[in-house]
Design a protein around this nucleic acid. Structure first.
Lengths: 212, 212
DNA sequence: ATTTTCATGATTGTATCCAATTATGGAAAA
DNA sequence: TTTTCCATAATTGGATACAATCATGAAAAT
């Protein structure tokens, strides 16, 4: 089952901006580029379809998902709801959060400017906070939403201001967790999500204007 | 892209109980049964994997997802969070809920005892309530969770008491919606979800005991 | 000039073939 | 008897061949 790895590669390409939203994803060309045959590529396309990064149409092929404001609203409402549950759970369990991993992810995130890598490191950070809750299915759900959101955030090449702001917010959340400040961590998390939502919306509109 | 239809057929077979949780899903046998070749069948397996109804393992094949208590907890926490958002949205929009469709689904649900059809009708009911919010992505997320839950609910052949109780709860929710009683509808919805959770958990334990 | 038709090519979907991996069962060794 | 090993069968994963559908563009009709 190599389709999974193919999906990762293709996801990185999309998040990196090699294929803009709406761009067609031709099977022969893509499979050649990724060094596999069409069979595992199609599996990868199906995976990314279910993740919400790709849209497929009968006999008309696949293309990168196009995102609108309504979708962003839904995505961030869902993220907020689920991540709040996850963070609360992490606090209520007595297992310590993985501070070392969280800090490593944040440090690494500051040094890269590859959108795909950045997205992965951001996820690593969130994982470090939520993982200890042991709620695998909840985590899966959050990751799926994160991946959809990642596309939106990567679109406008994610205005640099927003990236550094996001990093600061992450640090603040981590700090609150270290101090065992549950209430503070939750507020900071929600502010962080709201800011991310706002930023994605802005870069979406900007992108729309840019293409007249 | 016939894989989608194949996925529907297979999903029905699983929900109908033709393949118990943990049962292997052999590609050649299944493709023969469903009247397609292995290629679209494998796509269907991938779709159901992403839906959480099937688990795949490298070179070891696919099998029906096995559900444990922790997964049920996650599933129902997520459902509660998302369905509350959806119902609130439906109320805040001025577009009227689709009462006719909701009632039709409930009536039809009372007349069938096919788990797959019942699951679909239950979803139709929830859709009638949430659809008017127009939040497609939110609805997709809820549907995904519903499908995973459906497997859990169908396991113990869903104790008959629970089925009629669920029907009553649905009617109560519908009634509250008709009266424009937002607060009441929300409480009833949450009670309904909690009862479904409890029921699924019970039938899970019972099933475990039955197989020593 | 505009629209319609239709032949051709491009692209996707399905079936099948081959390769890689895993499961099975019996023989040999302990 | 029990365990280990290996040959064989069963099964999955990937590549390719074929069929079905869609997109194109030029010729014909209006």
């Amino acid at each position: 089952m190599n389709g999974g790895r193919t999906a990762e590669k293709l996801r990185d390409l999309i998040l990196r901006g090699d294929y803009q939203p709406g761009a067609p994803l031709r099977q022969t060309a893509l499979s050649a580029r990724l060094g596999v045959s069409r069979t595992p590529l199609r599996q990868a396309l199906q995976i990314l379809d279910d993740e919400g990064l790709v849209q497929q149409s009968d006999f008309r092929g696949a293309s990168v998902m196009t995102i609108d404001a309504a979708m962003l609203d839904d995505l961030f409402d869902m993220r907020q709801a689920l991540e709040n549950i996850a963070l609360k759970s992490a606090f209520s369990k007595q297992t310590k959060l993985d501070f070392a991993k969280a800090e490593m992810a944040l440090d690494a995130a500051e040094k890269t400017n590859d959108p795909a890598a950045l997205s992965q490191l951001n996820w690593d950070f969130h994982t470090a906070l939520y993982q200890p809750s042991g709620r695998k299915m909840l985590l899966d759900g959050i990751q799926r939403l994160n991946r959809s959101s990642a596309l939106a955030e990567a679109i406008g090449h994610a205005i640099n201001d927003r990236i550094t702001a996001s990093a600061n917010e992450h640090f603040a959340i981590l700090q609150a967790c270290r101090n065992d400040d549950r209430r503070g961590a939750l507020t900071l998390l929600n502010e962080h999500l709201k800011a991310a939502h706002k930023g994605a919306l802005a870069s979406l509109l900007e992108d729309k204007n840019a293409s007249h």
